[in-house]
């Protein structure tokens, strides 16, 4: 009789090591400063994990981290940003099985397809980094001796209320915001926040500078208004706000510093996107210079 077989009989089944789902702020994984968490359940009602329940102060810290990251990220070359987004896609591909398993309530074949779509979405946006300027910029033929060039520039810090489609939808709102040089603070799906933190692990290992993407889990109704009214946030994506009253309130609060607002709109995440998610968070800068000897 081998020792092994004897041991198998005597030892209890191995207890797995669970992951603590924390926030993702400035490239680090802190717990909510509030110490709060909320129980996340499966679609069948089983307990999955406790997610951090971010507070307004966590949102504030995330905005500060995003602001700090903005000069470096917006100043990076488009080629560099494209490379990093592609790297995120590579890392996601490598964890395909993990994400598929984490997509609660989705049959495994479908889950695999959603992860594939998320990877492809990242690749699609990665390629835009050094093309959007050519497509959305212009050499303007003005009636005078001037060189006149318009080029798109990132708006700044974008608050993103992510949709309930926990991976594909999440990737589909983050990638267009950051590929052009914005930094963002994302409020993950309240119902299904766990993949967002796993995605954060991917982001953290993809050469993405800390603070470019910050992810908060918690209650949308609690966090969104603070981000909508934050005077150092330049734009807000309300895609994930399903309550029309909350959407109206957030849009109204966003008026205080004239944030650019992307209004909620039903989206089919499986379809190939157009440019609007990128252009919503782009400014056009036009530079004039005389032409003379």
């Amino acid at each position: 009789m081998s020792r092994a077989s004897r041991g198998d009989a005597e030892r209890p089944a191995r207890l797995s090591v669970r992951k603590t789902y924390k926030l993702f702020i400035g490239g680090a994984f802190p717990r909510s400063e509030s110490g709060r968490a909320y129980a996340v359940s499966s679609t069948k009602g089983d307990f999955l994990a406790n997610a951090s329940r971010a507070s307004r102060k966590d949102a504030r810290d995330a905005v500060a981290a995003a602001r700090k990251a903005f000069p470096g990220w917006s100043g990076a070359t488009p080629y560099n940003r494209g490379q990093i987004l592609y790297r995120v896609a590579e890392m996601l591909e490598g964890r395909r099985a993990q994400f598929a398993a984490e997509l609660d309530g989705v049959p495994s074949k479908k889950a695999g397809e959603l992860v594939d779509a998320a990877v492809d979405r990242l690749v699609w946006y990665a390629g835009w980094s050094d093309k959007i300027g050519a497509v959305r910029g212009a050499a303007n033929p003005v009636a005078g001796p001037y060189f006149n060039l318009s080029s798109p520039e990132p708006t700044g810090v974008v608050a993103v209320i992510a949709p309930d489609e926990p991976l594909l939808g999440l990737v589909s709102v983050i990638a267009p915001a950051i590929v052009t040089g914005n930094t963002c603070v994302v409020v993950a799906s309240e119902r299904a926040p766990l993949p967002s933190i796993t995605l954060a692990e991917v982001l953290a290992t993809s050469d993405l500078p800390g603070g470019v993407v910050n992810i908060l889990t918690g209650f949308t109704g609690e966090l969104a208004p603070w981000l909508a009214s934050h005077m150092d946030v330049n734009a807000i994506d309300l895609t994930g706000v399903t309550d029309p009253d909350l959407a109206r309130r957030c849009e109204g609060d966003a008026a205080e510093n004239l944030k650019r607002v992307l209004r909620p709109k039903p989206s089919d995440w499986s379809e190939e996107p157009d440019l609007t998610r990128m252009t919503a968070f782009l400014e056009t800068k036009t530079v004039w210079h005389p032409i003379g000897v």
Partner: peptide, 18 residues
């Protein structure tokens, strides 16, 4: 800033975004 005038100022043209 949305418009940057270098070595000029307050120039406007219908072809130039503002």
């Amino acid at each position: 800033a949305g418009v940057v005038w270098a070595n000029t100022f307050n120039r406007f043209d219908p072809a130039s975004p503002f």
